[in-house]
């Protein structure tokens, strides 16, 4: 490829990507820092005034600082779900990979089903009510674990396959019992894939909208994504506030993305190569 064509292609790609992918983000950012009347025009113009702090404060303090509550709830939900996901999925991925047993086919089938099938929501609500878990954060944590564990099991199982069995055997000879082998030898060696799982799942759970919508009704347990939904009607005419909210909700995944770009891509593309 000649230099001219190469640069030409680069410039074209940059302009195209800029147009399609960057303009919407700029639009969000610009609208978020406009005043109400200018934002209502929905156009792609430079803000005439910068009520940045004011917009920020209004969004934060709306409905008794609901956004703060939501951040706390989303954090609890994300951290709790991921802690359980990492341990439970690693245990399954490990035993499934290591052990030849009649139930291997069943496990694979259930993992695949969990990956593809949508949950039956109303029966789940009914069941959660029976268990006293409906509209509670810990109930929601278990839901996220149940819905996301398939993906994590697949990642863990693939990674366990790369750890030689001699590692387990060395531990057995050293006198390790099953729990020791797993928690003191295998789990630490799973660190790379654990980072991937944490990063990918934290973004997914933090961004989850449907499940909290069904299983976390009410204002006490509102999550970050639900604030968008709740404020949509409230900020009906205040696009600047709505977009400021979008911006605030997008910041955590943005930070994760900046630091863990590689792990996210690795996690989401696993399976693409081996098939």
């Amino acid at each position: 490829m000649t230099l001219v064509r190469r640069y030409g292609l680069t410039v074209a790609a940059l302009i195209g990507a800029g147009f399609v992918f960057v303009v919407p983000f700029l639009f969000i950012v610009l609208t978020a820092v406009k005043d109400r009347t200018q934002a209502a025009q929905l156009d792609f113009t430079w803000p005439t005034s910068f009520p940045l702090w004011e917009n920020f404060w209004t969004v934060i303090s709306t409905r008794d600082f609901m956004l703060i509550t939501a951040y706390i709830n989303s954090t609890i939900l994300t951290v709790g779900s991921i802690t359980l996901l990492v341990i439970l999925a690693a245990m399954v991925g490990y035993v499934r990979q290591r052990r030849k047993a009649w139930w291997n086919g069943l496990v694979d089938f259930l993992v695949l089903a969990g990956l593809m099938m949508p949950p039956a929501v109303v029966p789940t609500i009914w069941l959660l009510q029976q268990l006293g878990l409906f509209a509670t954060l810990h109930g929601m944590i278990f839901i996220e674990v149940a819905y996301n564990i398939s993906f994590c099991i697949i990642l863990y199982r693939a990674f366990v396959a790369t750890i030689p069995r001699e590692m387990d055997e060395a531990a057995i000879i050293d006198g390790a019992r099953p729990m020791d082998i797993f928690f003191r030898v295998i789990l630490p060696m799973l660190k790379p894939v654990t980072i991937t799982v944490i990063v990918v799942q934290s973004v997914a759970i933090f961004n989850d909208f449907v499940n909290p919508l069904y299983y976390l009704p009410g204002n006490d347990n509102v999550t970050v994504q639900l604030t968008l939904y709740n404020f949509q009607s409230q900020f009906n005419t205040s696009y600047n506030l709505l977009f400021m909210n979008i911006l605030l909700v997008t910041i955590p995944p943005l930070i994760v993305f900046l630091f863990f770009n590689r792990q996210i891509v690795a996690g989401m593309t696993s399976g693409a190569v081996k098939g």
């Binding site: 359980l84 341990i87 439970l88 999925a89 245990m91 399954v92 490990y94 035993v95 499934r96 290591r98 052990r99 047993a101 139930w103 496990v107 259930l110 969990g114 099938m117 949950p119 039956a120 929501v121 109303v122 029966p123 789940t124 009914w126 069941l127 959660l128 268990l131 278990f142 839901i143 674990v145 149940a146 819905y147 564990i149 099991i153 387990d168 057995i172 099953p178 082998i181 797993f182």
Partner: peptide, 25 residues
């Protein structure tokens, strides 16, 4: 060295919150 009960915690969460509702549906 690879005990079956390692599957149990995951199976309980998945079974109760995913499988049972699916069949109930």
């Amino acid at each position: 060295p690879y005990p079956t009960w390692f599957l149990l915690p995951a199976a309980i969460v998945y079974g109760i919150l995913f499988l049972i509702p699916t069949f109930a549906s």
